[in-house]
């Protein structure tokens, strides 16, 4: 089975003054294409650090991270930016839309940073419109984030994450700011995307959300403490 992402013996150390904090102490895992994983663990367990590494927002101190066949662990800042733009789709707890942009403009943001920075074509625009339709926001294209509900904002973020057809989708507590009904709607969308073949890695601390993933990885003290497959 082709691996969307895999890492080997990842370590991440931080320097806080003279103290070295080992946030990750050798994590090895593999995510085959079409996987849907919930990363769980208490705060300080290293799951956020792992997510940052997965998102190419940071580089590991030791170890290898292969994303879509590329070794990402040793890339420059510039190359990491390109990896984020081309291979990763982010969904955040607090949606992270750009406040002054409309729904359509928010979906288009990753296009601004494509390699070579070509201008946005009508084909690009049509793709954005399709994505907006997929997440049910066709009638809200000219709205700005403050005019939308939390669920609608998260759907904009999902459309934005899909724009570049990413290798993996990283969702950081995607339902954390939503009521259970809206949260369920978002999880439905994620589930649908996964059935369509997308690889999703999701951080959550809510067991009933984690349940909806194919498998769960538990982290503790910077290491993988256990793995479970639902149902089971």
């Amino acid at each position: 089975m082709r691996m969307a992402a895999e890492f080997e013996n990842l370590e991440k150390h931080y320097h806080l003054g003279d103290v070295v904090v080992k946030a990750l102490r050798g994590v090895t895992a593999a995510f085959p294409e079409g996987d849907f994983v919930a990363l769980m663990g208490s705060s300080g367990s290293g799951k956020s650090t792992l997510l940052n590494l997965l998102g190419a927002l940071d580089r590991p101190t030791h170890g290898r991270y292969i994303l879509g066949g590329y070794d990402v662990s040793t890339l420059s800042d510039r190359q990491l930016s390109q990896v984020r733009n081309q291979l990763i789709g982010f969904i955040f707890q607090s949606y992270n839309l750009i406040a002054q942009y409309t729904v359509l403009e928010n979906i288009q943001v990753p296009l601004q940073y494509r390699p070579g920075r070509p201008p946005i074509s009508s084909r690009d625009r049509n793709r954005c419109l399709d994505l907006a339709e997929q997440v049910g926001l066709s009638d809200r294209l000219d709205h700005r984030p403050y005019q939308l509900s939390g669920g609608q904002q998260q759907r904009v973020a999902i459309a934005r994450a899909l724009l570049n057809d990413p290798e993996i989708i990283l969702a950081d507590e995607p339902t954390g700011n939503l009521d259970s009904k809206t949260g369920a709607e978002i999880m439905q969308i994620l589930g649908k995307l996964n059935r369509e073949g997308r690889t999703i890695i999701m951080v959550t601390h809510e067991p009933d959300i984690a349940e909806q993933a194919k498998r769960q990885i538990y982290m503790r003290d910077g290491m993988i403490a256990g793995e479970g497959i639902f149902p089971g």
Binding site: P110, Q112, Y113, R114
Partner: peptide, 8 residues
């Protein structure tokens, strides 16, 4: 946000 979405 822009950095996460690929801005250098």
């Amino acid at each position: 946000i822009r950095r996460a979405l690929g801005a250098t």
